[in-house]
């Protein structure tokens, strides 16, 4: 997902009886559905896991602007351009809500940027694929934001208050993202055969990376079990992937598109679709930094940060000057 394979430092999930009194009281509050708020006592592992997950999520929103930003100047109409601009601006906002939630856990904004730029912190694998045609922009809204919604809706119930509240804001805005993408594709499939082929090609390229967004099966993962015990995570990766496939198949059908998976078929017994296995070798490769656009994305972020340094410093200098002047005027008046 936007936060893929987040580690927890746990060797195994401990039972209430094994916990120290502080930790037991904490776990009991979580079990009772209470929210944990900044500055309250929390286990170090809980804090660290949240910092990893929230910052990874924030970085994904920020880096996620790049593949779409690629098409702002080339949108086919002024209206589409304005819509895409608003969508990308929302993603910047999502990044900011999330950075501010992470900061309540005692990490600074600059530390998080530093971790992104040095490669220590990850962001979602999906943003390391290129946007080759206008249909890719529609496909991203439909599939990538669609998969993000799948993951973000349950996160609104996360046990950490600031994260849960950030997710509520984000979820309100995401549905516009998915709809504008699907709307762009609806228009294109009614166009020329070449336009329809362009949409099919976009689906062919984005389908598997979208399924990979949920991460590999985590049914046997200690980290997932611990995250679930802490209510940082609510559903398994496979559960969410299944929901996503079941939701998306009829949408593809409506567009008259073929999902590029020969194993995809309805399974009456389980009341869901059977589908093929994504190429996890490709996934781990992209996560390790070897996807088609990893270097380009990271360079763009680093360049934006260093090119903006004079501006940040300039505004700081101006703020200091104004504050000094005000203080001097106050003394003079006394």
């Amino acid at each position: 997902m936007y936060a893929q394979m987040v580690k927890t430092d746990a060797a195994r999930v401990r039972s209430l009886e094994e916990m120290e009194p502080h930790e037991r009281a904490f776990q009991e509050r979580i079990d009772a559905g209470q929210k944990i708020e900044p500055k309250e006592w929390m286990p170090e592992g809980y804090r660290k896991t949240l910092v990893r997950q929230i910052s990874q999520h924030a970085h994904s929103e920020i880096v996620g602007q790049l593949p779409e930003g690629n098409w702002i100047t080339r949108a086919p109409t002024l209206e589409r351009k304005a819509i895409l601009l608003a969508k990308v601006q929302d993603e910047a906002g999502h990044g900011l809500y999330l950075y501010c939630a992470a900061e309540t856990l005692g990490i600074s904004r600059d530390q998080m940027y530093e971790q992104l730029h040095s490669g220590k912190a990850k962001y979602s694998s999906i943003f390391n694929y290129p946007t080759l045609t206008w249909a890719d922009i529609g496909a991203i809204g439909w599939l990538v934001d669609g998969a993000a919604i799948m993951n973000q809706v349950p996160l609104q119930r996360c046990s950490y208050g600031p994260y849960a509240r950030a997710m509520v804001r984000i979820c309100k805005e995401e549905s516009f993202h998915q709809r504008q993408g699907y709307d762009a594709l609806m228009r294109m499939v009614k166009g020329t055969p070449a336009q329809k082929a362009m949409v099919q090609d976009a689906l062919n390229r984005w389908w598997w990376p979208s399924l990979m967004m949920f991460g590999p099966s985590d049914d046997a993962s200690v980290h997932s079990a611990q995250s679930m015990a802490w209510k940082i995570k609510q559903n398994s990766n496979d559960e969410l992937r299944q929901k996503f496939v079941d939701q998306t198949v009829p949408q593809a059908k409506y567009l008259g598109l073929t999902i590029p998976d020969p194993d995809l078929k309805w399974n009456e017994e389980k009341g869901g679709h059977d589908f093929g296995e994504p190429d996890w070798e490709e996934f781990f490769n992209v996560i390790a930094g070897n996807g088609p656009c990893n270097a380009e994305r990271l360079d763009a972020r680093k360049k934006a940060w260093s090119d903006g340094a004079w501006f940040r410093d300039g505004l700081t200098a101006h703020a200091e000057k104004v504050a000094d002047r005000r203080a001097a005027a106050k003394i003079a008046a006394e």
Partner: peptide, 30 residues
């Protein structure tokens, strides 16, 4: 330089007649 901009808490009045409510925070020079 390269000091981080200070953090500000943001409060918004959603509609006339309501109280300002905390919505989150952000960084800004002033």
């Amino acid at each position: 330089m390269s000091s981080e901009w200070p953090l500000w808490e943001v409060f918004i009045r959603g509609q006339h007649g309501l109280n300002h409510r905390h919505v989150g925070s952000l960084h800004a020079p002033d």
